[in-house]
Amino acid sequence: MAKTVQCELCPNACVLENGQHSRCRARMNKDGVLYSLVYGKPCAVHVDPIEKKPFFHFLPGTTAFSIATAGCVLSCKFCQNWQISQARPEDTDNYDLPPDNVVRQAIFYDCRSITYTYTEPTVFYEYMYDTAIIAKKYKIKNTMHSCGYIKEKPLRKLSKYMDAADIDLKAFTEDFYNRICSGSLKPVLNSLVVLKEEGVWLEITNLVIPTLNDDMKTVKEMCKWILKNLGPDVPIHFSRFFPHYKLTNLPPTPLETLTETRKTAMDAGLKFVYIGNIRHEGENTFCPKCKKMLIERIGYFVKQNNISNGKCRFCSTSIPGVWS
């Protein structure tokens, strides 16, 4: 009897013969059953400021208990965590940390949220899902930083327990996704819309890479798409690229490119546009109405917060986000 299976979790839709490992390295067909090899076995466990994810409109100034396992559904040439994202789970140092222990540790370390991050949480979906259910029971919020490369059905199921998602919108062309990440753009756009529909608090991160995705015409198109499909309130983080992994031939993103990108996004109508991985006033939150500074940040740390009950302290304008 043939024992071939097909994974229905991400758009890669791996077809696996008996004994074969998946493209994401975290799954395997054993005797005709598909297994997750990383359940309860994170290779990275840290307590981080929530700003590091980055979330700027979600419980600012709090800490997030952050976990990841080995593996990823994409293979981005610029990956900053490639040592674990492109590794097999057998090759990483893993903790034995079942879902109830994750929640226990989050509470022990006084974290308001658990973040599924660093690699791609889709590869440890079952672990994330079970942990999120327990966390919810104990009033710990769930957040994820994901590339959004996941099928709609599992994403909708997960959304019931996910409070916030930061999605990497890596570029706005299929060519970039094909050539640089070995993936495609369309499923990511679909995930953004699904998360919005499901009421998950959404932020977007775009790593600006010199010559690869810094064309302002395409940036403008991307921002117009966000405005039309997700609305003007979704915060977007333009992050500075540093040479990593297979893209060591490119220079770090110049500050001028980042400020131009930010201006393009704001001119397109997005209200909360940030610059990351570099010290700049674009790290701060400003009231879209009275223009006063609401949250002053220095790197990942909040220096002052002028949002009170979700409103600007100066002009009482409601500021979108999850503030308590």
């Binding site: 024992k3 299976v5 979790l9 799954r27 395997m28 076995k41 290779c43 903790y95 226990r104």
Partner: peptide, 25 residues
């Protein structure tokens, strides 16, 4: 909390968990 602080390093895949989204073909 105290016990889990003593967490030990283990090999992945020792006790694999059945995946949630897949089918036989």
């Amino acid at each position: 909390g105290i016990l889990s602080l003593l967490g030990k390093k283990v090999n992945a895949g020792q006790k694999p968990k059945e995946a949630m989204f897949w089918r036989r073909i």
